[in-house]
Computed example of a mutant assay.
Amino acid sequence: MQIRLFDQTDSEDLFEYLNRVSIQTNNLGLEQQELQSSFNPEKLKHLNDKLQTSIAFIAQDDRTTKIIGLAQITRKLRIRYMNQAEFAISVDKKYWSQHIGSKLIEACVAWATEKWNIEGIYLEVLSDNQRAINLYKKYGFTIVGDLPILLTIDGQNKPGKLMFKHLKK
């Protein structure tokens, strides 16, 4: 397995990956039908066009060359927001418990620290996704707030947690 920056040539594979994981779990903020209407390989080509505001890393299976994980860190370039970013991650369910999420987090944190020199990263996670919460805590994220409604899944509002990691002490 390798972790690397997303490249434009990965757009078809990434679209296939997003289709695959969008039906595997309710932990994502994207429904299958939204994926079809909001994304396509051509749009995805531009994912890393603006390296100052958004960066995506992919995990790739060495044997199949399939994308098996995606992490993205995003920041605003406005002065009042320049010291923080937002983080999102997904991993193909077939590859859970293989440290892929850990490696993706490490890549994003390294980028945020070394390239952007930011001071903190936020993320949102469903309150009942204890597996993800434990992973984020392992990497120094702490729960800093409750979100009464994070996602609406099958017509039901689901609460979430807001987590934060300080990058500089």
Rank of each mutant, 00 (worst) to 15 (best):
residue 2 Q to M: 14
residue 5 L to P: 01
residue 6 F to W: 07
residue 8 Q to P: 05
residue 9 T to E: 15
residue 11 S to M: 06
residue 11 S to R: 08
residue 12 E to L: 08
residue 14 L to R: 01
residue 15 F to E: 04
residue 16 E to P: 00
residue 17 Y to E: 04
residue 18 L to G: 06
residue 21 V to R: 03
residue 21 V to H: 04
residue 27 N to I: 03
residue 27 N to L: 04
residue 32 Q to H: 13
residue 33 Q to Y: 15
residue 37 S to H: 11
residue 38 S to M: 09
residue 39 F to E: 07
residue 43 K to T: 02
residue 44 L to Y: 02
residue 45 K to S: 04
residue 46 H to N: 14
residue 47 L to E: 12
residue 49 D to A: 06
residue 51 L to M: 13
residue 54 S to N: 10
residue 54 S to H: 09
residue 54 S to I: 11
residue 56 A to V: 05
residue 60 Q to W: 02
residue 60 Q to N: 02
residue 62 D to Y: 03
residue 63 R to D: 11
residue 64 T to R: 04
residue 65 T to L: 10
residue 68 I to D: 10
residue 70 L to Y: 04
residue 70 L to K: 06
residue 70 L to F: 03
residue 71 A to D: 01
residue 73 I to N: 03
residue 76 K to G: 07
residue 77 L to P: 00
residue 79 I to W: 01
residue 82 M to N: 14
residue 83 N to E: 12
residue 85 A to V: 05
residue 85 A to Q: 03
residue 86 E to W: 08
residue 87 F to E: 05
residue 88 A to P: 01
residue 89 I to T: 05
residue 90 S to T: 08
residue 91 V to K: 10
residue 91 V to A: 10
residue 93 K to D: 06
residue 93 K to F: 03
residue 94 K to H: 10
residue 96 W to E: 10
residue 98 Q to L: 15
residue 99 H to I: 01
residue 106 E to W: 04
residue 109 V to F: 04
residue 109 V to W: 02
residue 112 A to S: 15
residue 114 E to I: 12
residue 114 E to N: 15
residue 117 N to G: 13
residue 118 I to Y: 00
residue 119 E to S: 11
residue 119 E to R: 10
residue 121 I to C: 07
residue 121 I to D: 06
residue 122 Y to M: 08
residue 125 V to M: 10
residue 127 S to A: 15
residue 128 D to N: 14
residue 130 Q to E: 13
residue 130 Q to C: 02
residue 131 R to E: 10
residue 132 A to S: 15
residue 133 I to S: 06
residue 133 I to L: 06
residue 135 L to N: 11
residue 135 L to R: 09
residue 136 Y to S: 03
residue 139 Y to H: 15
residue 141 F to D: 04
residue 142 T to G: 11
residue 147 L to I: 15
residue 150 L to S: 14
residue 153 I to Y: 04
residue 157 N to E: 14
residue 158 K to C: 11
residue 160 G to P: 00
residue 160 G to L: 09
residue 163 M to G: 01
residue 163 M to V: 03
residue 164 F to P: 02
residue 167 L to V: 07
